[in-house]
């Protein structure tokens, strides 16, 4: 980050003493201008903190300050004020401002943001953002304490997007491997959920995923998307010797090359080619 800041500062010095540097486009296609020195951000901080200003103006101020946090070497001089303003904005009435502020704080592993997001997952009435977004923001920090809540969500939530985010979070938690295995094995689960479980299990226990992949490919009643996932896993990460010794698997590959959806045929051919079967 320091290098990026130095580079940006050098670039700003090369602008011939102009007051600011264009770095991007705001919501209304306006060029955002970043001041050359951190103290010049104080007016933008005032706007961000002021609930009486329009949401557009506050979002623009936020974008300016966020750009400056990468661009200015002396940004540390306003950093505590920026964090204080973000904490205030995270509880604002406007959902977009709230989400943007929480997103920045969560990337900083900010304790206030993490506690607010966890609280919202426990008690939806107090949630500052939707549960899927909260899970996504909490996943930035594996130490945030979200794993037990994500495990509960897998069992209790009916929202597919939220459950998918929960599985993505749990891909970093070895204690959840059994839960993920159960979801993967459950043919009543939606295909997208099971595919996310496969991805999570690969991160936690690649050997277990390989065992599941072999059985999924051999299972003639398995969903085609899951067979494709299994084939991909075996092709990318399979043990060549175990595959060569597996007569059933080789026979099944011959079948899959000839019948079934085009995607499966293609994956089966790729598998056979890779392992020279």
């Amino acid at each position: 980050m320091a290098k990026e800041r130095k580079k940006a500062t050098r670039a700003s010095r090369n602008t011939g003493g102009r007051k600011s540097v264009p770095v991007g486009r705001a919501r209304a296609q306006r060029v955002i201008e970043v001041p050359l020195a951190a103290p010049d951000l104080l007016p933008a901080l005032d706007i961000l903190r002021d609930p009486g200003r329009s949401v557009d103006a506050r979002l623009e101020a936020l974008q300016t300050i966020q750009a400056a946090s990468f661009a200015l070497l002396d940004f540390d001089s306003v950093r505590p004020d920026y964090i204080a303003a973000l904490r205030q904005a995270a509880e604002d009435q406007d959902p977009e401002l709230r989400q943007r502020a929480l997103g920045i704080l969560a990337r900083e592993h900010d304790g206030f943001a993490q506690e607010a997001l966890l609280e919202g997952l426990r008690d939806p009435a107090r949630a500052l953002v939707g549960p899927d977004k909260a899970l996504q923001l909490l996943s930035y920090d594996p130490h945030a304490g979200v794993y037990p809540i994500a495990r509960d969500i897998i069992h209790t939530s009916e929202d597919e997007s939220t459950r998918r985010e929960a599985l993505r979070v749990l891909a970093g938690d070895p204690a959840s491997a059994a839960v993920i295995e159960d979801v993967l094995a459950d043919k009543n689960e939606p295909s997208a959920i099971r595919r996310m479980s496969a991805s999570a299990l690969h991160a936690l226990n690649p050997d277990k995923l390989q065992r599941w992949a072999s059985s999924a490919v051999l299972d003639t009643a398995e969903d085609a998307d899951l067979v494709a996932t299994g084939l991909t896993a075996l092709t990318q990460f399979g043990d060549a010797k175990a595959i060569a010794d597996n007569k059933q698997l080789r026979k099944r590959m011959s079948q899959l090359q000839e019948q079934g959806p085009a995607k499966i045929k293609q994956l089966a051919r790729r598998f056979v080619k890779k392992y020279d079967l």
Binding site: P80, D81, A84, R87
Partner: peptide, 15 residues
């Protein structure tokens, strides 16, 4: 760095 409070347990100042 960020704003801190040592007055009460677990306080996150916004000031």
């Amino acid at each position: 760095d960020q704003p801190l409070s040592f007055a009460r347990y677990g306080e996150y100042p916004r000031s």
